[in-house]
C-alpha cells in the first residue's frame, strides 16, 4: 500500500500544481475570455483538462501588460 502511494505521488503533485497555477493566473488576470467564475469552476471541476483548457483558450493576451 505504501508502495502505491509513493508511486502515485508525482502524478498527484503535478495535477495539483497545474490546478493551483491555473487558479492563481485566472484570479490575477484582469480579464479572461468569457466570465471569470466559469473558468474557476472549469479549472476546479475538470481535472487536468480544465487547467489546460484555461491556459490554451481562456487567457486574453492583451489583458496583462
Amino acid at each position: 500500500m505504501e508502495n502505491t502511494v509513493t508511486l502515485l505521488l508525482p502524478i498527484i503533485v503535478i495535477q495539483f500544481l497545474l490546478l493551483i497555477i491555473a487558479l492563481i493566473s485566472c484570479i490575477r488576470a484582469e480579464e479572461t475570455l468569457g466570465p471569470k467564475w466559469v473558468w474557476i469552476v472549469i479549472i476546479f471541476c475538470i481535472s487536468i483538462i480544465g487547467p489546460i483548457l484555461y491556459f490554451v483558450i481562456g487567457q486574453r493576451k492583451d489583458a496583462y501588460k
Partner: peptide
C-alpha cells in the same frame, strides 16, 4: 510551466 507538466503527466 503547464506544458512540461502536462507532457510529464
Amino acid at each position: 510551466v503547464w506544458l512540461p507538466a502536462v507532457i510529464l503527466l
